[in-house]
């Protein structure tokens, strides 16, 4: 851009970098603290001696978590759920957004449909009727219940619809003159340029699937079918963790074996962190993608 050479500008630049670094630090400091907790000894945690750095470093919490069969199984359930859930959402969203976005083609009932869709996103029947509905559809204790009800995401549809609208009309018109069908237009013209927005909604959907816990707890009868966050919820927030942590720690202490540093706090933080890793891995990768994509979209408009 522009060269900044004056002293004031240089000071500002230094100040700017410091401020930004401080902000970034403030945002991650709690996580560093949590990581330190999960790597610190029982005694250090009890004495509140753990700050941003582990005290009496050990990795037993992680060893325990990774050896815990149900944790790994739930992890697997969550991965499968994300893969299928995001795929279902993508198919549903693209197919719904396309007709709604083709404003140049008049369509019977388009506006009422959009209103109804928005309305359906705002109101729910409540827990018990929804549960009863799922049961009568034979979806309780069925893996599909984690995927199908969330497949139609109203706001993703709106997002993609608006993105489609921004694709230059000339492109579409030229294709139509060549006799292209709606399927051709969707698959050959729209989808190839829509990757950024699709990546964006996929990230939203994946994070949503990964983080949701309530449906697992309510609809799945067997804990072995629970997604990871349901399992974590039960363990971390419902005090099961305390039971498990102390029982495991107590047992181990008696055995004089390796897990003598397990603590409820350490164990729960370790679990949370392991559960967060996939998001941390995926996000920076997609972030670049979708910021670029969003920019692209608006330039085109």
């Amino acid at each position: 851009m522009i060269a900044e050479n004056s002293l004031g500008d240089r000071l500002f630049t230094i100040f700017l970098y410091l401020m930004m670094a401080l902000l970034a630090f403030l945002c991650v400091a709690p996580f560093i603290h949590v990581i330190s907790l999960s790597l610190s000894s029982n005694a250090a945690i009890k004495m509140g001696a753990v700050g941003l750095w582990p005290v009496d470093f050990h990795t037993q919490n992680y060893q325990f978590v990774l050896k815990e069969p149900q944790f790994m199984r739930s992890f697997g359930v969550s991965v499968v759920r994300v893969v299928f859930g995001v795929s279902a959402m993508l198919i549903m969203t693209i197919m719904t957004a396309y007709p709604l976005s083709r404003d140049s083609v008049p369509m019977f009932g388009r506006t009422p449909f959009k209103m109804i869709m928005l309305f359906s996103g705002m109101f729910g029947g409540g827990l018990i009727p929804t549960y009863m509905a799922m049961r009568s559809l034979h979806l309780t204790n069925n893996f599909l219940v984690l995927i199908l009800p969330g497949a139609l995401a109203v706001f993703s549809v709106i997002l993609v619809m608006n993105f489609f609208r921004g694709i230059p009309v000339e492109l579409t018109e030229a294709a139509e003159l060549d006799g292209a069908s709606h399927w051709d237009i969707l698959f050959r013209i729209f989808l190839p340029v829509s990757l950024p927005v699709l990546a964006t909604i996929s990230l939203f959907s994946a994070v949503g699937h990964w983080n949701s816990w309530f449906d697992g707890v309510i609809y799945m009868d067997e804990i072995r079918m629970w997604p990871l966050q349901s399992y974590l919820y039960a363990r971390v927030t419902s005090q099961m963790i305390q039971k498990s942590g102390t029982a495991a720690g107590g047992t181990a202490e008696r055995m004089g074996q390796s897990f003598n540093e397990l603590t409820p706090e350490g164990l729960s933080t370790a679990m949370i962190l392991v559960a967060t890793i996939p998001i941390l891995l995926v996000y920076p990768f997609l972030q670049r993608y979708f910021v670029k994509g969003l920019t692209l979209g608006s330039v085109k408009g």
Binding site: G125, G126, P129, A133
Partner: peptide
Amino acid sequence: MLIPAIVSMILFRFYPMWGI
């Protein structure tokens, strides 16, 4: 293309809505 969305809305949105 709208059929899946309509089916999904009816089954998962409007069907339980009697709960209101």
